[in-house]
Design a protein around this nucleic acid. Structure first.
Lengths: 177, 177
DNA sequence: CTTTGTTGTTATCGACTGATAACAAGCAAG
DNA sequence: CTTGCTTGTTATCAGTCGATAACAACAAAG
């Protein structure tokens, strides 16, 4: 048991990774801070002290996820700045199902004002980033975002990504993509 | 106060409508059966007795929502059986934001086995229905479903539908649709 | 070595929440 | 009217969960 002592920033990072996993699986309301603590290997009260409240932890998780998505797009655009290149990057993100599904849970929890505001802000930012990185028209960008949302809900339904549930309609939808 | 006595089926219907509203706003885990009861004007234990458990109530709500969506598509196809006609029908559904958002909450709660199974089943059914009603190719149908998912998450973020939150990127995305 | 700040824990609370039980009130038939 | 079935309520529990408080362990500095 390597129960090392870390700085608050380092431990916070571990908790954040655990939060991505947990929130990605069960969403904002459905996830217990205790489960996140267990995944991170710390006590539940410490998770709360590191982030203040469960909601602030969720918001931090959402911001982190969006940062990683935007970073993946920027990196892809450096090699080739078209929508196909960004699409490949998106498919790579699907390997970590929880990442994109956290985003979906943010959208779904938008009735909570703070979460809704963050979701709208970050989704708009990703839209603009995709459009600007690739110099695409609004129509092309919308189709890209739409396909992204379809894949994201399919990730939530566990028909794409690692260990997918077998599903005839899913394989049908994924052909020629 | 018209506190009339209804049959179990009639009262169940009222509870189901309340459940669409409540689950659409707060999702499966985030909605309290007590809130549904309040909206339906009955006591919380009665809601439970009518549907067994909160999960069974959510599943019934999900089934109902999917039935209504499929019905809207069937009706639209009777007049004109192409994707544009079904798209118009979908836009009409957006007027009742909660309806589509319940669907999204079903996807999001797919980690719960029973909910995941129902979500996959019904989503696949809608996909096949759209494709068969319009005789569209898998590619065309996929694009339709993708756009539908984009609009659904935008509905969850409250940037489309009644009383939309003003948002530059949202108006941008909705132009020429 | 002791002082001081940071990291982390255990103990515990208070509010919530789904579910059960027991009971009451309406309604139709005989 | 009373018997029996359905509709509905109040009371209440048992478990959960986020959050707070108090304390403990460790490390660096002087």
């Amino acid at each position: 048991m390597t129960r090392t002592r870390l700085t608050a920033a380092e431990r916070g990072e571990e908790v954040l990774q655990a939060a991505i996993t947990a929130f990605g699986e069960s969403g904002y309301a459905g996830t217990k801070t205790d489960e996140i603590a267990r995944l991170a290997g710390v006590s539940q009260p410490y998770v709360i002290r590191l982030f203040g409240t469960k909601q602030q932890l969720f918001l931090a998780t959402l911001e982190r996820v969006c940062d990683e998505i935007e970073q993946a797009f920027r990196t892809a655009a450096e090699r080739k700045s078209d929508l196909e290149s960004l699409g490949d990057a998106f498919n790579q993100l699907l390997v970590r199902r929880e990442l994109l599904v956290v985003l979906l849970h943010g959208f779904a929890a938008s009735a909570e004002p703070a979460i809704g505001e963050a979701s709208r802000e970050r989704f708009g930012g990703i839209y603009r980033l995709v459009r600007d990185l690739t110099n695409s028209s609004p129509e092309e960008t919308r189709e890209f975002m739409a396909t992204g949302m379809l894949l994201t809900v399919m990730a939530a339904m566990q028909v794409v990504g690692p260990n997918p549930v077998a599903c005839t309609w899913a394989t049908d939808l994924l052909e020629n993509l």
